[in-house]
Design a protein around this nucleic acid. Sequence first.
DNA 1: GATGAATGAGATTTCATTCAT
DNA 2: TATGAATGAAATCTCATTCAT
Lengths: 196, 196, 196, 196
Amino acid sequence: MQQAVSSQDKRAAILDAALAVFSERGVDGVAVPEISARARVATGTIYRYFSSKEALVNELYREQKAALGRRLNEGVNHKAEPRELFADWWARMVAFARENPRAYRFLELQDHRPYLDEASLRLERSVLAPMSARVRRLQAQGVFRSDVRHEVMMAMTWGAFVNLFKAERDGFVKLTARDIAAARDSCWRMFVASDG
Amino acid sequence: MQQAVSSQDKRAAILDAALAVFSERGVDGVAVPEISARARVATGTIYRYFSSKEALVNELYREQKAALGRRLNEGVNHKAEPRELFADWWARMVAFARENPRAYRFLELQDHRPYLDEASLRLERSVLAPMSARVRRLQAQGVFRSDVRHEVMMAMTWGAFVNLFKAERDGFVKLTARDIAAARDSCWRMFVASDG
Amino acid sequence: MQQAVSSQDKRAAILDAALAVFSERGVDGVAVPEISARARVATGTIYRYFSSKEALVNELYREQKAALGRRLNEGVNHKAEPRELFADWWARMVAFARENPRAYRFLELQDHRPYLDEASLRLERSVLAPMSARVRRLQAQGVFRSDVRHEVMMAMTWGAFVNLFKAERDGFVKLTARDIAAARDSCWRMFVASDG
Amino acid sequence: MQQAVSSQDKRAAILDAALAVFSERGVDGVAVPEISARARVATGTIYRYFSSKEALVNELYREQKAALGRRLNEGVNHKAEPRELFADWWARMVAFARENPRAYRFLELQDHRPYLDEASLRLERSVLAPMSARVRRLQAQGVFRSDVRHEVMMAMTWGAFVNLFKAERDGFVKLTARDIAAARDSCWRMFVASDG
DNA sequence: GATGAATGAGATTTCATTCAT
DNA sequence: TATGAATGAAATCTCATTCAT
């Protein structure tokens, strides 16, 4: 059913269409008219909302990265037990990847990197900052081992998580809830000082 | 003094030039004449050795993926103690990433994925197969936990490793030998049944 | 406080805005929405008053060319002494260029020429016609030399005048009242039969 | 008869085609494929020789302006009698306009002005510099009146000349050799201190 | 009448591939 | 076999004009 759409809907429709096609074929693999066709707007309309394809990529990236940031950090109970906190964090990552598979895939693309501007890169760094701080504190408290630097911990955990879902997307595994829980516990074991 | 070069040298020069520029700016970010210029070869010559840019990307991918496979699997002492075996494997990954940074970066690119054909994807899967088999055996022997499927283990370990080096390339960490050893031990802890 | 404006005010505002931007950046260098923005009018409104950009250019051209024509020809005392008449004519040209620099600049643009229709070109020719007739008469009276055709005289005088002000606009000279008077006398000497 | 053309011929063909169409319809009125069609090359070929349409316009402008400069200044006999020198100069301007009507028209276009870079503008100024210096000397020698600044003289003479040929092109006059000689003498009278 | 977001044809420019030499 | 200038289809982006509100 074709609905009349407001101006903001049109902007949103463009971003949504861009997310759909970028996540499937990469940023360089998609021509602007393909985005406009999917968004059911004229090609020129895209340039009313975004000054260039590059600007569109950046805005989409920031929108989704910010959404990821909110999903990971909003309302986190910092007083929870470390293991519970870690489980919460893991659950949030899983939820984002499951609920927004296209956004998740888009954010993990590498081919938008040459497009990203300073603001986008700054935002990227800020998303994992709260967790990073928390990891550092857990090290100070003796919960996490101190022989692994927190940047190393963060990079490995994030990489392990991301590649797990990439493996699923590429058809190497079909992840069950049990797999995901087991993966979470494996990650926990990576850094914890003694078995909990 | 310009040297006459054999056909094979020319082919190799093209692949080498392609690796250099692809690893820096991605597959889509590089025009074919840039490759030929760097290879000190005419543009048309590339098409004598490779039927298309896509074919060049696939051949380069397979060449480097196979090199990685050899680096990881050749001469592995399967009778070594599990922990030693794992350390060897880790050392091989590190060595490849350090010795062939351009190859490593190229293989981790995502934007060549739409170019890859069935043969390339098959090869990709085969590289980690020996390790995967070994992981399975270690689980059967009770060395590795059995509550995590081996595909999950493989995906997480590989992801943790890759992202660690990506973090370094993106300027988030400068990895010391100590960091890399600590990271290796963390990974080991992920899956081992009891502390070794 | 935003004032309600009559239709005629709106039409005038559009022409005024168009004159402002055309005179600065040429006809081809200006997009229609820029004109509407400066006129504080919606883009579509321009098309209520002018059927196309081309029509707008023509109407603006005719409006300003007619204004120039009036400035040059209205109330000229044809009984004045030839030299006085010439001085009056010269003063009128100077006054127009000084008082309406944007109109003067717009009329001297070349890039509206492909837009001009027959009516505009006819009007252009009519503006200098009275002077041309007068020059012819002065030749018949023996005041002006007869070895130079009046069309040639007209073209040279007009060209000399126009280029003098163009040189000023392009920053090659800063014209004083004395320069302008000297220029006028030079022009007079061009054609007069003997020194007056 | 289709001739094989060398690389330089192709570059020249593009410049020649551009001159032909620009002089007829202005720079903004011509799309790049029209130039390539007239030059009998592919559109992309233009971009092998010129980095952009703007660069093409500048190179064409400089080529023709330099040709004009040579035509006006090369081999001028500075020891000739002033009047002879002036006649020589005038004859050179006429010859250029007659022999290269398209170049002459192109150089007099106004719509390439927004395209012109600093090098083009510098060249423009240099073309009339020798004459300008000569005019100054003639003033110092008492041949030319001193009550008119040399910049004013130059601007007027050049403007008179240019507009004379513009009037012919626009169909207002058909210039005979006699007209051109009469125009030259008129210009001479403009500035000479006493009749020569 | 007025609005201004939307349109889509057409402009400039890029680049994988070809082919005459 | 090697060359690299040439090609032209396709990409990005602009802008005169329209039309639903």
